[in-house]
């Protein structure tokens, strides 16, 4: 069984068939003409060229016919495109975050996943966001693709036909591991999807959440991307950011070590554009074990 298709698959394929069919007529026709002329009017067989009159009629003909044909191709392509660009209003919206070098998906109820699980036959609208550079969300078996652009929300939509999986590739070159930036769309039965969708792996259920709430982290830092007194935790982990260290601006990776340093000694490396007003004693009440749990938590908030 091949990969799952979408309503758009057939629409795009029919445009291909049309263009290829017309092209083959011309490719074969002109190639055969060249071969026949070279043989028929080869210099040995046909040593004297015969004068051929220039023909306005011919010039007009082979200008007009191709023009009509390419306009037909344009309209055919446009029709398929319109379909692909018109998501139904009731489509389920899923946020897609692309970053160097993986994909993550967030559903309307806050559920997060590395796999894009969707119910069969339901229209899905993807809201595409980038955390860093250009990416492109490409589903070959659906025949759809749209760039994921930092600072801008692009969209795609699809309606899977049948159960199974479809590959997702990053199609816009995005650095060293571009070729490894893949994911999978898994099309599920409605019931199975609902069951999976309802089991919310809520951030609030994470063991570190209560600890951090008690310490007061969430006064200034949010987990949903809104900005309060300090940077949000959402999508923080794994990013590069510029910080001021010993009065000098340097770039660091937000990894466990950096986060641990920032919690234990907030003023040592302060992110550019933020004031160093996080309490020095913020982590005073945390045990070493709790600190590691907090780091685990920060790693999954995205």
């Amino acid at each position: 069984m091949g990969p799952v298709t979408s309503y758009s698959t057939a629409a795009v394929d029919s445009v291909l068939v049309f263009i290829v069919a017309v092209s083959m007529v011309f490719l074969l026709g002109l190639t055969i003409a060249m071969v026949v002329f070279v043989v028929r009017y080869g210099r040995r067989r046909h040593p004297r060229p015969e004068e051929v009159r220039q023909s306005i009629a011919l010039e007009v003909t082979w200008t007009l016919i191709p023009t009509v044909l390419v306009l037909a191709m344009f309209f055919y392509g446009y029709a398929g495109f319109t379909l692909i660009r018109s998501p139904p209003a009731d489509a389920m919206v899923i946020n897609v975050l692309g970053r160097m070098w993986d994909w993550s998906f967030e559903y309307e109820n806050g559920k997060q996943s590395d796999l894009l699980r969707v119910p069969v036959g339901e229209p899905v609208r993807l809201a595409l966001h980038s955390a860093d550079v250009l990416h492109s969300f490409f589903v070959p078996s659906f025949r759809i693709k749209e760039d994921v652009v930092p600072g801008q929300e692009n969209f795609l939509w699809f309606k899977p036909e049948g159960l199974g999986t479809a590959d997702v590739f990053c199609a816009e070159y995005c650095g060293t591991e571009h070729a490894f930036m893949m994911s999978t769309i898994e099309v599920m039965e409605e019931a199975a999807f609902e069951e999976w969708y309802a089991t919310l792996d809520r951030l609030e259920d994470h063991p570190a959440y209560q600890v951090m709430d008690d310490v007061g982290c969430f006064f200034c830092h949010t987990v949903d991307g809104t900005i309060e007194g300090g940077p949000t935790f959402k999508g923080l982990f794994g990013k590069a950011r510029r910080v001021v260290r010993d009065g000098e601006e340097v770039e660091v990776m937000v990894d466990r070590d950096y986060l641990r340093r920032s919690i234990l000694d907030p003023a040592a490396e302060v992110a550019v554009d933020w004031d160093a007003d996080m309490p020095e004693d913020a982590a005073e009440d945390l045990t070493a074990e709790q600190l590691e749990e907090v780091l685990d938590f920060l790693e999954i908030v995205r």
Binding site: V15, I19, G77, Y78, G80, F81, P140, R143, E146
Partner: peptide
């Protein structure tokens, strides 16, 4: 490549 629908693919 120039047709919209096929280009998206």
């Amino acid at each position: 490549s120039g047709a919209l629908a096929t280009n998206l693919h």
